[in-house]
Write a protein that binds this DNA or RNA. Structure first.
Lengths: 135, 135
DNA sequence: ATTTTAATCGGAACCATTCTTGTTAAAACA
DNA sequence: TGTTTTAACAAGAATGGTTCCGATTAAAAT
């Protein structure tokens, strides 16, 4: 997903265009990894001195909810990254630098018969380790 | 895993036997679901009035580290359950009651060629939804 | 029985996140 | 273009799960 697509989603859903929101999306477009609210705040600070944490969190959750971002919990902290626009996939996540790599194999195809009586809402498949650069 | 096995692990690693630790393990033996520190504290309270949160958390992490418990993050809170002694597997987790069901299919076999240059440490595969009782 | 060392307590501190009230600014409307 | 409406934001207090600290207690070793 790029900045334009993200802003289009915001507009279509009736949310306002603000410089801060654009700047936030720019941040995620430039990061191929899962980032914390703190990471974002550090990025915003120079351009918007004293930006409120409330603004950071409110928009992170809004973006997540609108499908502009996707999120996961790493070491007890919520992390966010730009949602990949194309088909369903999972991620390898580097424990050192946080960079992600797409995994084009989803295990859900194989497990339908194991959960006959169950109602499946969601699933999570993540692989952790070190990327080629960090190993 | 049962109470005896868990206490044996503690003893073998040189940790002390205390009634509180035994009571904690008894709690997890009786729960086939992921529980929070709070759940455990509520269970402990009647027998050990005013038990310190420090004791709860210290032992939860010790047990996790020793492989007596396994843990996962659900809705931003750490959850724990007794480690299943036998072979490697994953879990379906009910969003309503927290009960777990073993999934005997691990996707890791299939993805080795996708991560040639990467060093894999760990992985997580969880399925969320509603169990037959809660649906 | 005594010593050593770990476990526990009580409560303060921490930190990510959320809430509250008042203010500002974007978009809609006249 | 000026005014109204409504959402976005600021500032900082509050929350809640978790961790830390110094003092005390109890288990295990000697």
């Amino acid at each position: 997903m790029n900045t334009g697509e993200a802003l289009t989603i915001l507009k279509e859903k009736g949310y306002k265009y603000t410089d801060k929101r654009k700047h936030m999306i720019d941040f995620f477009v430039g990061e191929d990894r899962y980032c914390t609210a703190k990471d974002l705040q550090v990025f915003m600070e120079p351009s918007y001195e004293g930006i409120s944490f409330d603004t950071i969190y409110r928009n992170l959750h809004l973006f997540d909810q609108l499908g502009i971002l996707e999120s996961t919990e790493l070491n007890g902290e919520k992390h966010f990254r730009l949602k990949c626009a194309h088909h369903h996939h999972h991620h390898f996540i580097c424990n050192n630098c946080g960079i992600t790599k797409e995994i084009h194999h989803c295990p859900m195809d194989k497990i339908s018969e194991e959960l006959q009586q169950y109602m499946i809402d969601d699933h999570k498949f993540e692989i952790y380790g070190l990327c080629p650069t960090c190993r």
